[in-house]
Write a protein that binds this DNA or RNA. Sequence first.
RNA 1: GACCCUAUCGUCCAGAGGCCUAGGACACUCCCCUUUCACGGGAGUAACACGGGUUCGAAUCCCGUUAGGGUCGCCA
Length: 441
Amino acid sequence: MSSHPIRTRFAPSPTGVLHVGGARTALFNWLYARKQGGVFVLRIEDTDHSRNSEESKQIIIDGLHWLGLDWDEGPQKGGDHGPYYQSERNAIYEEYLAALEKKGFLYEEHGAIRFRSPRRKVLLEDLICGNIEFDLTNPATHPDMTLRRPDGSWIFHFVNVVDDIEMKISHVIRGEDHLSNTPKHLELYAALGAQPPRFAHTPLILNRDGSKMSKRDQGANMSIYPEQGYAPEALRNYLSLLGWSPKDNREILDTSTILELFELHQINRRSASFDPEKCFWINGQHLLRMDLARYRELALPFLEKAAICSESSEMLEKVLSLVKPKIKSLPDLPDWVRCFFSDEFPFEPEAVAKNLSTPQARERLSLLAQALLLLECWSASSIETCFKNRAATLGIRVGELVHPARVAVSGRSVGAGLYEMLELLGRERTIKRLLASAENR
RNA sequence: GACCCUAUCGUCCAGAGGCCUAGGACACUCCCCUUUCACGGGAGUAACACGGGUUCGAAUCCCGUUAGGGUCGCCA
């Protein structure tokens, strides 16, 4: 198409959190660049000295790393258009300011440097919002913008435009909160004699009730997702669906599919609201569908944190593949699997009360243990047969054996398939636990 | 207040004049499967903000109203 290479950028200011809206903006920029075979740039807009710190910058970098949005140029990566921190680009801004000065666009007021608007109508051809004309002829409604403060520090509009020119950004994909700023930016491009990039303003993400999403709202802060056991690929999936869709009712999409189907101009013009429940569901679907190696990778930190360690990696894999189809959230994992790796596990009081409190139940456990002791082959299917036979002999439903046994062996009333659990646990531990419960509880 | 954007189930998305008695998904309710919890399958509740046009015909086009959001900073 164009002879100009596609270059997009994510240009956050370090505020201490990576907001979910910012993450989505970054995702769209990343998707577009990757889809077009272009370059994705990360630039940190840290001109406001009062509120930026190393930690804040690190939070953004960590968040993007976690989300899997790798940049081609930027912090930790370098590139031909650096530096990528605005705080280090002073000389460049001075140069551009001098150019504007020379052309007579600037004037000073109270020590600040301001841009004299040409006072014209400005047409924005937005890839998402369409053509919008802004009338900037009235100074009362559109006052001249300030470019530089009396203390020498720079204002967003100016440095943002200068950097986009210098970094040869071809597509500015950003939140709709910048839509009304764009005519000002267009004035700057014109004044600098630069060709403006294509703009694409995405609708904002709101809360479920339609209110503006602040960093404190549920789900707004990206740092909670790794902690809560979300898979980055699931978040990419959910975020991509806020304002965009593949149009064919598919919802669970891996990133390569999104890449294949994503189109900038198909993004909605309607603001979306963030639904934590749906996000959770999408994550669950990814957890369910991912392969065991990936599952294990995501699960490991949660097991380590709970001080659960496996005697063998083979055992770990067996346990994980057993519970994987059942579990919806990785933070729940330790409670589900602790009983496989240690004899020290808590008994849920309600589960005990319901299933182990009667002498009858304890009697059955002990009978069950005797039967299992005699089993010639310790496999899930023969264990199942044994349970069923036992139940038939006692004239009860299998459930009346299964539920107490589950609690005796795991302390819990919910879990994976019991017969498979027992097979994995081994005969010795199974019988020991059945008898312990038969006697004590 | 001015300017800009938006308006389909509670939520996300489909719908770009007749295929719409509006489709899918989350959530919710019920049923089936099942040793539990899940998964899976089935069913159900639930929406075109309102008012005018245009048209033989409008969720879809136009205008207005209302509502929500955004911007109007020497924040980004």
